Computed example of a mutant assay.
Amino acid sequence: MSTPSPTGPLVTRDTLAAQLRELGVRPGETLLVHSSLSSLGWVNGGPVAVVRGLLDALGPDGTLVVPTQSGHLSDPALWEAPPVPEEWWGTIRATMPAYDPLTTPSRGVGVIPETVRTWPGALRSAHPQTSFAALGPRAAEIVAEHATDCRLGERSPLAKLERLGARVLLLGAGYDSCTCFHLAEYRVPSPLVEVGRPGPDGWETVTEVSITSERFDELGHDFERDRPVVRGRAGAAEARLFPLADAVAYARRWLELHRPRAEEFRNPPA
């Protein structure tokens, strides 16, 4: 059987950088990128070419930020894809390696963030499950002091990105992956959950705000309808560019209307 020819378009470092500039990415800005390599087409150089294209568009004074989540450092009792036998849970909790910003791989966010994580000079924040990695002059400021009991709230890089006037680039990714919407969840009444994970001194449990990306596609649709979002293409991918602060402010109002009230969290229906 013959090997099928690759499907295009052909994407290179230079063509990607040019399309990002055309979209409106500015030299010197701070950019939070959510991405899908497969959506771009046939990329000559794969994720390395994409990262270089992003850095070219941002220039030496710009800062690139990506999510480098490691949700697999979690309680095996909650695993569903796939689940593991209950008799394994105790051993898994006892032997799971603790989070290490240098060696713990990202998971579930794609190959481009993992490429940024391992890039020379990249810095990564300290949260064991919802870290961010950054490259550029503001990287240290952005990833510093990510509280280990604040996944995506006021003591996370998201709040710093908001204060710095960062923008969000969805590069072939949908609004369901838009992490900045989670910052709004910390600003509306939300339930608390107990989160288990490996710690430096063994298995630990912390109390956290419950977060979910459920209905983020719907939220993103309404945000794009009501607020200025720059839309274009990069390779074969649809790209969207918008201010992070605008998205967080809109999401907060939207969640207040579409999420249950605090009283309903305390007194769920029978």
Results as ranks from 00 to 15, higher is better:
Leu16Trp: 05
Ala247Ile: 11
Trp79Glu: 05
Asn44Phe: 00
Glu214Ala: 07
Arg138Ala: 14
Asn44Gln: 05
Glu256Ala: 14
Arg167Leu: 03
Trp203Glu: 05
Leu161Met: 14
Gly235Thr: 06
Gly232Ile: 11
Pro105Glu: 07
Tyr99Arg: 07
Pro120Ala: 08
Gly110Thr: 04
Arg225Ala: 06
Arg26Val: 13
Glu86Thr: 09
Arg52Gly: 00
Leu32Asn: 01
Ala184Gly: 06
Ala234Asp: 03
Gly24Phe: 05
Pro113Thr: 06
Asp56Ser: 11
Arg197Cys: 10
Val209Ala: 02
Ser213Trp: 00
Pro189His: 14
Ala18Trp: 05
Ala270Asn: 03
Glu154Ser: 06
Ala81Pro: 02
Val51Ile: 14
Leu169Arg: 13
Gly8Val: 15
Ser2Cys: 07
Ser36Arg: 09
Val84Glu: 11
Thr148Arg: 13
Ala17Tyr: 13
Pro9Cys: 06
Pro105Val: 07
Glu263Thr: 13
Phe242Arg: 05
Gly41Leu: 13
Arg225Lys: 11
Pro200Gln: 04
Ser70Cys: 13
Val229Glu: 03
Arg167Val: 00
Val143Phe: 02
Ala134Ser: 13
Leu123Gln: 15
Pro4Asp: 09
Arg21Cys: 12
Gly174His: 04
Glu162Gly: 03
Arg117Phe: 05
Ala184Asn: 02
Val195Ser: 14
Leu64Lys: 08
Arg155Phe: 01
Leu152Gln: 12
His258Ala: 00
Ser156Ala: 13
Arg13Cys: 15
Gly196Arg: 10
Glu218Lys: 01
Thr148Ser: 04
Gly62Trp: 09
Ile112Val: 15
Arg124Cys: 10
Pro27Met: 10
Thr207Gly: 03
Ser210Ile: 00
Ile112Ser: 05
Leu31Cys: 03
Arg252Trp: 09
Leu171Val: 07
Cys178Tyr: 01
Arg233Ala: 06
Met1Leu: 12
Tyr99Asn: 12
Phe216Thr: 09
Arg187Thr: 00
Thr63Trp: 14
Arg253Asp: 15
Ser213Glu: 05
Ala140Ile: 11
Trp88Ile: 10
Lys160Arg: 15
Glu22Met: 12
Pro191Lys: 12
Leu23His: 10
Thr68His: 01
Leu78Lys: 10
Ala77Thr: 01
Gly172Ile: 07
Val168Gly: 06
Ala251Trp: 03
Ser210Tyr: 11
Thr30Tyr: 01
Phe265His: 13
Glu80Ser: 07
Cys180Tyr: 01
Glu86Ile: 02
Leu78Glu: 12
His182Arg: 08
Gly59Glu: 10
His258Thr: 02
Pro189Phe: 11
Ala144Glu: 04
Pro82Thr: 04
Gly108Trp: 08
Gly199Lys: 11
His182Ile: 11
Gly172Asp: 08
Ala57Cys: 11
Ala140Glu: 15
